[in-house]
Amino acid sequence: MIIQFEKVNKWYGKYHALRDIDLSVSRGERLVICGPSGSGKSTMIRCINGLEEHESGRIVVNNVELTKNRKRLHEIRQDVGMVFQQFNLFPHMTVLENCTFAPTWIKKMSQKDADQVAMHYLERVRIPEQARKYPSQLSGGQQQRVAIARSLCMSPKVMLFDEPTSALDPEMIKEVLETIVDLAKEGMTMLCVTHEMGFARQVADRVIFMDGGRIVEMNAPDEFFRNPTNERTQLFLKQILN
């Protein structure tokens, strides 16, 4: 088990954002999480690397329980890669520097080794030729692929994707999804918040539907799409698939 949620609850002030979340993810598993906005799906995956703190329950990542212990949190974060909706590349650094920042400063890798690792992953996301450019010179799809490469440079054990294609123009969604599919085929454990249902069918081992801070449905994609049991899931799927 690489990620485990036990009765996790989170509030934003009076707003109950996560309600009694129980979830286990094993190594190599690929989960797709969907649901209406405000259902808690982003909040849930942001709890995994401590971007959000949970108020009760337990979250265990790679056998380490998430607590307020800062040092532990930094260690967990090195094992958990995260890709954001808005890419969040560092605009004052080149693509290559974006990728070598964490390996050199946090893993104390030599610049030469870090450059090599970075180029390796930039090749995997198919943009090695952009290494010397700045993020603002790239298209959205290219930026998101750099963001994926940047995370991979830390050799994470798990990758979290928080709506990785929601900010992209339609023609760029495909290139980013293909990159994630490649990663999935290589056996990377991943949790992906997305409404790309074709993608979910293609890569997911399980699809999760959240509503009102709860996991209301969780199933293998075939079952999930063919026989959604929950009423809200049915409604959501009907809206999103039309």
């Binding site: 954001f84 808005q86 969040n88 605009p91 920042f101 400063w105």
Partner: peptide, 26 residues
């Protein structure tokens, strides 16, 4: 943008590194 800080800490950066290399230059 807050996403800059989030991206940096997600990579495992301690606070001083986030401030020094990500926040201050921007």
């Amino acid at each position: 943008p807050p996403g800059q800080r989030e991206a940096a800490i997600s990579l495992g950066s301690p606070p001083w590194l986030v401030i020094w290399k990500i926040m201050l230059p921007q």
